[in-house]
Amino acid sequence: GLEHMADEEKLPPGWEKRMERSSGRVYYFNHITNASQWERPSG
């Protein structure tokens, strides 16, 4: 619901949600550090 939507907005600075086109899996990418990970970043 709306709570989940708001929660997605609160990623740490630099992080954004991305989708891997080949598999459709969602991952997280940090455009500041060029880091990427499957787990939702905390902090």
Results as ranks from 00 to 15, higher is better:
Ile32Pro: 03
Gln37Glu: 02
Trp38Tyr: 13
Arg18His: 06
Lys17Pro: 05
Leu2Glu: 12
Ser36Gln: 10
Leu11His: 01
Ser42Thr: 14
Trp15Ala: 00
Tyr28Gln: 00
Arg18Gly: 02
Gln37Ser: 06
Val26Met: 09
Glu16His: 07
Glu3His: 11
Asn34Cys: 15
Asp7Gly: 10
Arg21Val: 15
Gly1Asn: 12
His4Asn: 11
Ser23Asp: 06
Ser42Ile: 13
Ser23Phe: 04
Ser22Gly: 14
His31Pro: 07
Glu20Tyr: 09
Ala35Met: 14
Gly14Thr: 02
Ile32Ala: 08
His4Pro: 12
Leu2Asn: 11
Glu39Asn: 07
Ala6His: 13
Glu9Lys: 07
Pro13Asn: 08
Glu39Pro: 04
Glu8Tyr: 05
Glu3Leu: 07
Gly1Ser: 11
Ser36Asp: 02
Lys10Gly: 13
Pro12Thr: 02
Ser42Ala: 09
Lys17Leu: 09
Trp38Ile: 05
Glu9Leu: 08
Glu3Ile: 12
Leu11Gly: 00
Trp15Ser: 00
Pro41Cys: 03
Gly24Leu: 05
Ser22Thr: 14
Gly24Ala: 04
Glu8Asn: 10
Gly43Pro: 11
Phe29Lys: 03
Pro41Phe: 01
Met5Thr: 11
Glu3Tyr: 02
Lys17Arg: 13
Ala6Phe: 12
His31Val: 15
Gln37Asp: 01
Pro12Ile: 02
Glu3Ala: 13
Pro12Gly: 03
Ser36Gly: 05
Asn30Tyr: 04
Asn34Glu: 06
Arg21His: 15
His4Asp: 13
Lys17Asn: 01
Ser42His: 10
Phe29Ala: 01
Glu20Phe: 08
His31Leu: 14
Met19Leu: 14
Glu16Pro: 00
Ser42Val: 12
Leu11Met: 05
Met5Tyr: 11
Arg21Met: 15
Gly14Ser: 03
Gly24Tyr: 03
Phe29Thr: 02
Trp15Arg: 00
Gly14Phe: 08
Lys17Thr: 07
Phe29Leu: 03
Gly1His: 13
Met5Gln: 12
Gly43Glu: 13
Phe29Pro: 00
Val26Trp: 14
Glu3Asp: 10
Arg40Ser: 07
Glu39His: 10
Asn34Pro: 02
Trp38His: 05
Glu3Phe: 02
Tyr27Gln: 02
Gly24Trp: 03
Tyr27Pro: 00
Gly1Arg: 12
Ser22Phe: 11
Glu16Ile: 08
Gly24Ile: 01
Glu39Leu: 06
His31Met: 10
Ser22Glu: 15
Ala6Gly: 11
Trp38Glu: 05
Pro12Asn: 01
Phe29Gly: 00
Thr33Trp: 05
Tyr28His: 00
Asn34His: 12
Asp7Ala: 09
Ser36Ala: 11
Ala6Arg: 10
Arg18Glu: 01
Glu16Thr: 08
Arg40Val: 07
Val26Pro: 06
Thr33Ala: 04
Pro13Leu: 09
Lys10Leu: 11
Arg40Tyr: 08
Val26Ser: 06
Arg21Gln: 15
Arg40Thr: 06
Ser42Gln: 11
Lys17Ser: 06
Ala35Trp: 10
Asn30Leu: 02
Ala6Lys: 10
Pro13Lys: 07
Asn30Ile: 01
Gly1Met: 11
Glu8Met: 07
Pro12Trp: 02
Pro12Ser: 03
Arg18Ile: 06
Asp7Asn: 10
Gly14His: 08
Met19Ser: 07
Thr33Ile: 05
Met19Ala: 06
Asn30His: 04
Ser23Leu: 04
Leu11Trp: 02
Arg25Gln: 05
Ser42Arg: 09
Ser23Gln: 04
Tyr27Arg: 01
Arg18Leu: 08
Met5Gly: 10
Pro12Lys: 01
Tyr28Asp: 00
Leu2Asp: 12
His31Thr: 15
Glu39Arg: 06
Val26Gln: 05
Trp15His: 00
Arg25Val: 05
Ser22Asp: 14
Ile32Met: 09
Gln37Tyr: 03
Pro13Ala: 10
Trp15Asp: 00
Ala6Gln: 12
His4Ser: 11
Gly14Ile: 02
Trp38Gln: 04
Trp15Phe: 02
Glu39Ile: 06
Pro12Arg: 02
Gly24Thr: 03
Ser22Asn: 14
His31Gln: 09
Pro13Glu: 09
Ala35His: 13
Arg21Trp: 14
Glu39Trp: 08
Arg18Trp: 04
Gln37Trp: 02
Pro41Lys: 01
Tyr28Leu: 00
Val26Lys: 03
Gln37Lys: 03
Glu39Thr: 09
Gly14Asp: 05
Arg18Met: 08
Asp7Glu: 11
Phe29Asp: 00
Gln37Asn: 02
